[in-house]
Design a protein around this nucleic acid. Structure first.
Lengths: 249, 249
DNA sequence: CGTCGGGTTGATAACTTTCAAATTTCGTGG
DNA sequence: CCACGAAATTTGAAAGTTATCAACCCGACG
């Protein structure tokens, strides 16, 4: 969509992402590379961060899928977002003293741990990176907002269509998907908890979408059969996902 | 809840808010005061920012209520958040080149306009303020997340109860409410668009809450009749709204 | 093999919306 | 100060969407 000036493929996907928002100097790029210190591995189902835990780290996802969710006292779960490779996760857990949500790997995961002290230290060395991270956080917030709009004002079919499209667009940005489709390790239960629906209903709606010849969600694979019609049904506009290049020189 | 060290009442409510997150030096406080340059007045119903507009300013609300919302192509509206005095609004519209949502005053409003150049300039002079604003933005995101959870996994009654409590807690923080209740200029239509319900249903649920002796929402006044029972019904935890004092010295 | 989690389907119940209409509130001009 | 019209609130009835419950199927895995 655009060509960020500095950060090239030799830098981390995360640096590339920030570089698309704020033009970064080589000093700043070096500072960013420091973030990728402690590479850690997690396996599916073993929580990385638990609601209420204190002094948590953040992570930059290198491979695998993760989900962030909250649990209610009635036992219900709301998944707030899924993270895919290249995503920064747990910023709020790091910034606030205590984590306000859970983070759990969906697949096996590799991630770089980012300590609070490291991140704040980097903001000292390269202050403009704080602005860059603010930008990135705002983009994440825009995603949550879109998610909110979907749950609040779209019916199940539109909502599911929108979700599959958004995920596709995000995966495409990091080279894990195309306009044909993408590999997707999510279960229908997870879709349900993300979309505020029951798993049974997700299943039915998925069938409708399939029978309409729009998308297919099977065997861990999402396939778009009629992308344009799907975009139209979902009223999907990917503007909030990618941007027009560095806004700050 | 806590006593922020530096910023006292002589500074703006916004400075006080940031001061609760990051200890601010006097230089930084002065820089913040620069934000309150152009005081502007808006009247109810006249949009401040429109979805798609470019190069918008942000605002710091001095008085009045504002709402941020998105419109869907099917005509539905989802209110993402209400802003009350002391709130910063339109950060995303400023950070991204083009606004991704509408902002509209609910009552007559006074606000200080913050130009993009001013804000970024201040980050240059006082880099730690960027971190402080990142903190503030994360707190806002936490609110949106809580909102998302409510719409996704709470039924109408819990959702409404939670909403009224959250609003009350926020107003209390800026001295506009107490545990008795607060003045509230919102219509039932606005509640509906915020909570993902129909106005008719909001009305019915409001009646139930009233008949249960929990809260009353009438004549522009919210009154808590049984706060504890309401908190229990809504599973309300205000942890995400206030914080434990400066996390960064 | 037998179990277990995920997917699928039908039947029924619950919650919420929509439509329609009556009632009340409130600002404005006479 | 009252009358009027617009907007907001309220209520009932019917329709629609989604959840819940229950059962069955299937493939992975120990």
């Amino acid at each position: 969509m655009q060509s960020p000036p500095a950060p090239s493929s030799q830098h981390s996907p995360f640096a590339r992402k920030l570089g698309a928002l704020v033009a970064l100097s080589s000093t700043e790029l070096e500072a960013l590379d420091k973030l990728h210190g402690h590479r850690r591995v997690f396996s599916a189902g073993h929580e990385m961060v638990h609601q209420g835990q204190m002094d948590q780290s953040a992570y930059i996802l290198a491979s695998g899928w993760v989900c962030s969710y909250k649990l209610l006292s009635n036992g219900a779960r709301q998944i707030v977002d899924f993270q895919i490779p290249g995503d920064f996760l747990g910023l709020r857990s790091l910034l606030f003293r205590t984590a306000d949500h859970n983070i759990e790997p969906i697949t096996a995961v590799e991630a770089s741990e980012v300590l609070a002290s490291t991140l704040l230290g980097i903001f000292n060395i390269a202050p403009r990176l704080a602005t860059a991270v603010l930008w990135a956080a705002s983009r994440d917030e825009a995603m949550v907002v879109e998610h909110l709009v979907g749950i609040g004002r779209r019916d199940a079919k539109e909502r599911l269509a929108h979700f599959l499209l958004e995920l596709g667009a995000r995966l495409k940005l990091v080279g894990l998907g195309s306009s044909e489709g993408y590999a997707c390790p999510l279960s229908q239960y997870m879709l349900a908890d993300a979309l505020g629906l029951s798993a049974v209903h997700v299943n039915r709606v998925l069938r409708e979408l399939r029978e309409d010849g729009l998308v297919t969600f099977q065997h861990g694979q999402v396939t778009f059969h009629d992308l344009q019609a799907l975009v139209c049904l979902a009223d999907f506009d990917k503007a909030y996902l990618d941007h027009d290049g560095p806004l700050m020189k």
